[in-house]
């Protein structure tokens, strides 16, 4: 059974990683969510084999399942949930500002790469680059 769970975690990690490497913010957010699920799943498996009695006061039960990983997973799930909401908020704001959710290259880097001696943030030029990047993103 642990093998199956580990396999599911592996699928989640690979899908999450692929989504994380996309250019669209919405996909990145889904990717982060999937990665978080994979990590939480691993936390649950780290408690050992399934099928043992939960930690309750039962007569005649000698072997309990380890409650700690479950508590840890619960904490991690809450944190993942909160962060996903925050990410969606930031993503929404990005869409409000740009009407687009493509993650852009840093302009400063591109200018440095071309070794422009002049001050890079000449407003028109930046604006033109940005518009072009957005255009490419839309296509």
């Amino acid at each position: 059974m642990s093998v199956l769970v580990a396999f599911i975690a592996a699928v989640l990690v690979s899908t999450g990683t692929w989504l994380l490497l996309q250019r669209r913010l919405s996909r990145i957010i889904v990717g982060v969510g999937l990665l978080g699920h994979a990590a939480n799943l691993l936390l649950v498996v780290s408690g050992g084999r399934r099928g043992r009695a939960p930690l309750v006061d039962l007569d005649g039960v000698e072997v309990y399942s380890d409650p700690l990983p479950q508590a840890l997973a619960l904490t991690a799930i809450v944190i993942t949930f909160g962060i996903t909401v925050l990410l969606l908020g930031i993503g929404f704001r990005a869409w409000q500002v740009d009407q687009d959710d493509v993650v852009e290259d840093e302009l400063e880097d591109r200018y440095l790469a071309r070794r422009l001696e002049v001050d890079p943030d000449i407003a028109d030029e930046v604006e033109a680059e940005r518009a072009q990047a957005a255009e490419e993103g839309r296509r």
Binding site: L20, L25, I28, A38, A39, S46, P69, V103
Partner: peptide
């Protein structure tokens, strides 16, 4: 724009941290 980069990279690190914790436990 720059905050998003920061958030996503930090989140990847945090997720990896949870994975390491699970393995350690």
């Amino acid at each position: 724009r720059s905050g998003m980069t920061y958030v996503v990279i930090s989140l990847v690190a945090s997720t990896f941290f949870v994975v390491v914790l699970a393995l350690l436990y």
